[in-house]
Each structure stands twice: as structure tokens, then as C-alpha cells.
Amino acid sequence: MNPERILIAEDDVRLAQLMREAFVRRGYEALLLHGGGEVVPAVWRLRPDLLVLDLMLPGADGFEILRHLRPRWTGPILILTARDGDFDQVSGLELGADDYIAKPVATPVLLARVRALLRRSRSGPREAELELGELRITPSAREVRAQGRLLSLSDSEYELLVFLAARAGEVVTREQLFRELRGIEYDGLDRSMDLRVSKLRARLREQLEGRAPIRTVHGRGYLFAVERPPR
């Protein structure tokens, strides 16, 4: 079996080399790029299993790269950057990134996030088809339809929707979401999952005429509430 291929787009040469060495020691194939203009052509040419993307690359920044890659390339994208503001996190996730880590980051944490993203991408959901209100979720095709109309969702949005929908009527805690979807424990402070839920809810509202089945349960978590579709 060929090793999984990770493409690292990072202009800090020393940091990029350290990441490459860490990935190779864990059995991955790791390739380096230092300029933003190289990333999109390299993704089409090399077809990596995962892209580690710095936002501040010379030639083309990470946001521009995300706009070019999504939605045509659906592989997992992990943003690793010194820009740790909420605006940058929201922008990165809304443009299609699957995870966001602020530098500096400990190597075990980076490896855990990468393993979680690759595991999700590699295995895919195994749930049976779900019909909830006006939504029909078909895991075998990774499709979500509303009254027969195909909805456009990124990989991370789809995974989150399936996780919540499979537990419809139950409150899902942040601890569950972090553990199952990101492979880490919730530290009580990280708001990235809240941002991801908000993004999914907004995307559903765009495509369901203002409706979204995901509810916030204050102090507890999130609830997928099944409602009858409008007549």
C-alpha cells in the first residue's frame, strides 16, 4: 500500500522541513512548497491526500488558494498559520478549510489533527441512509438532498451534518464534536466548532429558504430538530 501523501505549503523553510520530517517518521509521504503560486497546480498534479496550508504565502495567500481549490478539490485542508484571529478562522472555514491551527503548535497535536482528517477522508461515514424532515442523506454517495434537490456542502460541513443528523432529537455536546470530528479533547475555550456549526447552519439556510434544523441548546450543545417540510 502506498503511503498517504501530505502536501505542505509553508514559506518558513525550517518549519516546513521539521513538519516534513515528523510526517515521514510516521509513515507519510510529505512534499514541500514554499510559494503560494505553486500550490494549486501542485494539488492538481500530485493529488495529495491532505494539504497543510499556511495563510501567509508569497505569490498567493491561503485565502486565494482556498477560493481556487474549493469546491473542485474535496480533499482535506488543514490551515496552519500565525494568524489566530476569529476573523481569519471564520474566513478560512467558510472558504472550505476542514481545520484551523494557530502557530506555534506542538508536533503531537499537529499529528493528531492530521490523523483525524485523514481518517475521516479515508473511511467516510458508514451510516445507513437518513431521512429527516425534508432532508435525505445518502452516505454511500456522500449526498444531501432536500425535496430531491442536491445541496452543496463541503466535506467538513457534510461530516458535521451527518454526525448531528444521526443523533436527531439528542443534544450533542461540544466535547462529543471535538472528540469525534477532530480527534482531540475540548479544552473549554476553543470556539472553532461553534464557528463550524454556525457556518453549516448558514449554508443550510441559504439552500432551504431560510430554514435550518440545527438548534443551539444554551449551556449544553447542539440539537438536530426534525421539522415537517413546508407545503
Rank of each mutant, 00 (worst) to 15 (best):
E131S: 14
R113K: 03
I101C: 04
T138Y: 09
S198N: 14
V40N: 03
I137E: 10
P58Q: 00
A42S: 14
E127V: 01
R120D: 11
R191E: 12
I137Q: 02
P108D: 04
Y158I: 00
F63P: 06
P104E: 10
L46A: 05
F224Y: 12
R67M: 06
T173G: 12
W73R: 06
V24E: 13
D11M: 07
Y186N: 06
G210V: 02
E157H: 07
G221H: 04
A146C: 09
R203F: 15
R126M: 10
G96A: 02
I184K: 09
R115K: 15
R203S: 14
R205H: 11
E21K: 03
G221N: 02
G85P: 02
L160N: 05
E227H: 15
S121P: 00
L15T: 10
L7S: 09
R203V: 09
I8E: 07
P104R: 05
P58L: 00
M193I: 14
L132C: 04
R174G: 13
G169T: 14
G62N: 08
P104M: 08
A22R: 05
I101K: 01
V109F: 13
R120N: 10
Q176V: 11
G221W: 05
S140G: 11
T138N: 13
R220A: 13
T74F: 12
G27M: 07
F23Y: 12
V114R: 00
L177A: 02
